[in-house]
């Protein structure tokens, strides 16, 4: 475990906490894309199939349980919570899941390291995670007033991906045979999707104005 990896995981954890804070405390999911949250739940469900077959560390297992539990409970909150569900921007959150899921599944079936169920699912989760933020970014673009917590949530998620790239660079130079093309390319694509958001996030922060993405 290096500092970039730890910082990345903590940023990821922070993003989830910020989102849960918004949903649980303010009882609002305004500006949060249910589509993205459902895709993340699917990402973790398909990636962490090894939680029952391989033991890596207590840290690893606990974090996996946190990400699985939080992603499914966020989806539950938005769909079923009596108060929270009323704040969901259903008419704005129109991105169609299958446009992302089907190409990712096809790609995972053809481009993978090993053709086993677990490995193809793991690869599918990497491809899907890379694009899962898209419905959220589209929703942000349609939302005129992005509240602070939603902006911070997306910023923390983007920071987590950026830190993972530094983690891979570090591991490449410190560990023998650490070459993972699929993980790296999917991770870089994922981080690049945040570039535009980061630009406007820092602009709004610098000028001390409310975050707004141009349509």
């Amino acid at each position: 475990m290096n500092i970039f990896r730890l910082a990345g995981d903590m940023t990821h954890l922070a993003s989830v906490l910020v989102l849960l804070l918004k949903i649980h405390t303010i009882k609002s999911c305004a500006g949060v894309s249910l589509k993205t949250q459902e895709l993340y739940a699917l990402v973790f469900a398909t990636r962490y199939l090894d939680i029952v077959t391989d033991f890596i560390s207590v840290y690893n297992t606990v974090m996996k349980l946190i990400f699985l539990g939080s992603s499914f409970s966020i989806v539950w909150y938005i769909r079923h919570h009596r108060v929270v569900r009323r704040s969901y921007d259903k008419d704005q959150d129109t991105f169609r899941h299958y446009l992302l899921m089907i190409p990712c599944m096809l790609l995972a079936l053809f481009v993978h390291e090993k053709f086993t169920f677990k490995e193809v699912m793991w690869t599918f989760s990497l491809y899907l995670e890379a694009v899962a933020i898209l419905p959220q970014l589209v929703l942000l673009q349609r939302t005129r007033n992005i509240d602070n917590l939603t902006g911070q949530y997306v910023f923390l998620l983007g920071a987590y991906r950026g830190l993972y790239i530094f983690n891979w660079i570090y591991r490449y130079f410190t560990e023998p045979h650490f070459v993972h093309w699929i993980t790296w390319i999917a991770g870089v694509v994922q981080t690049l999707l945040y570039a535009d958001f980061f630009y406007y996030y820092f602009e709004s922060w610098k000028n001390n104005v409310r975050l707004q993405l141009p349509a």
């Binding site: 990821h12 690893n60 793991w122 993972y164 045979h177 070459v179 993980t183």
Partner: peptide, 10 residues
Amino acid sequence: CYQTNSKDEL
């Protein structure tokens, strides 16, 4: 351990 290296990530 080439295969398991990145599987320890989240």
